[in-house]
Design a protein around this nucleic acid. Sequence first.
DNA 1: CTTGTTTAGTTCGCAATTTGTTCTTTTGCT
DNA 2: AGCAAAAGAACAAATTGCGAACTAAACAAG
Lengths: 211, 211
Amino acid sequence: MLTRKQSELLEFLVKHSEEHDVPPSYDEMRDALGLASKSGIHRLVSGLEERGHIRRLANRARAIEILRPSGAAASLAKSVSAAVDAVSLPLLGRIAAGTPIEALSDPTNHLEVPASMLRSGDHFALEIVGDSMIEAGIMDGDTVVIQRANTANHGEIVVALINKQEATLKTLLKEPGRIGLEAANPKYETRYFESDAVEVQGKLAGLIRKY
Amino acid sequence: MLTRKQSELLEFLVKHSEEHDVPPSYDEMRDALGLASKSGIHRLVSGLEERGHIRRLANRARAIEILRPSGAAASLAKSVSAAVDAVSLPLLGRIAAGTPIEALSDPTNHLEVPASMLRSGDHFALEIVGDSMIEAGIMDGDTVVIQRANTANHGEIVVALINKQEATLKTLLKEPGRIGLEAANPKYETRYFESDAVEVQGKLAGLIRKY
DNA sequence: CTTGTTTAGTTCGCAATTTGTTCTTTTGCT
DNA sequence: AGCAAAAGAACAAATTGCGAACTAAACAAG
C-alpha cells in the first residue's frame, strides 16, 4: 500500500510522536530521512494523506495527525494504546434545546463507551436535558456520543451552535440559503437560520442509557 | 498536531486544571510560558481551539475547557482513566413483541459495553426488533443490556417469557392474581396473564444505540 | 438604576523567524 | 533519450514575540 519512502516516513512519524509532544516539521522529516531538500517530504506527506494514513491541516505548521500506522510502525503504536476495547470520552456537559452547553462542575467526568461506537476522529459525550428529541428515541437523561465535525449532511442529527451561543441537538436540514434545525417532538417548531449563523460542532454517533 | 508553543500551553492548561479548580487567566498563562505580552496567548489559544483541543466561550473570563490533551499531557490524563474495563457480553439474539428470541446466526456475536452499565450478576444483550417500546425510547435496532433475574418489581422493564415460548420486552405490571405486560406504544394493548404463565428472564439495565 | 473602577479578554500593527508550497533544475538510472 | 526521484531556490504563509489600545464583563459605590 505504501512505497518504501512513504513507509519509512510513516515509521518516523510514529516514532517521533512517541518521543516528542509535537509532530515534526518538514525540515526535521527531511533530516530524519537523510534527504537534502524538503520538497520530497511534501510529496511523501501528500501520498500518506491520499492513502488515508495521516490527516493534515493545510498550510498549518506541524499539523499532521497519524490515523493509521502500518507495518512495523503499527505494532509499535498498538502496544501503546490498544489494550482495551472501550474508550473513555470526556463528558463535556449537558445539552438542551435553547441553552448553551452547561459545563459540568466536575471537569474530570468521563464516560466509557464501547470502541465499536466510535468512528474516526475525535469524540465527546453530552448528557441530554429535555424532551426535544424524544421521537428519535433520545430521552431526558440519556448520554449521547458525538463525533466532532465541522460539517454534516442533510438529515443528520448534529450538535449545532447557533449565533455562537446557543447549542442544541437537532436534525440538520440543509436548504438553499438557509439552515433548518428540526426537533423530534411536535411540541417544538423547526427553526431556520442564515447559513452563517449555524455552526456544526459534531454528529450524533451513539447513545447510551442506563436504567 | 500542535506546534511547540501550542503544546507547551496545552500542557500547562492540563497541569493547571489538575492543581486548581479554575482554568488560568491569560496573564497566568503568559507568566507560565515566560512571555511579556498576552496577545501571543490569545493566538495560541485560538490555535488550540482551531485544532479541536480546547473549547472556549468568547469574552468570558477563564472560560477554557480542555477537550483533548495530547502528547505528554495525554499520557498523564490517560493513566488516570485508561484502566477502562469494558465487558464483552454475549449478544443472544433479537427480541420483538410477539415472537420468541430469535437466535443470531453467529453465536460468537459479542458486544462491548462499559462496565459502568452493569449491575451485579450475569448480563446479556439483545437486539430490539419492532416499535413496541418506542415511547420508552427503545427503538428498532437498538441493543439492550439485560441483567439476568428471576424476579422483578412492578413497573420495571423486563424480558418476560410467556408460556415458555414467547419472549418480549415489556413493562411488568404486578397485580393481584395476574401479571400484566405493557408495551410503550399505544398501538399495542396491555396483555394480562396468570402469574404462572410469565417468567421473568431479566431486567433492562442499559441501552446502546449506534448511528 | 446608573456610574465608575477593575479585571480579563480581544484586536491591531510591526518585526523576526520558522515552516509549507511551488517551481525549476539536476541527478541517477535504465 | 526518457523517466522518476531528489535537490535547490524562491516565495508565500504561518508562527512567534512585543506593546498599545480597545471592548466586555464583574463588581462596588453613589
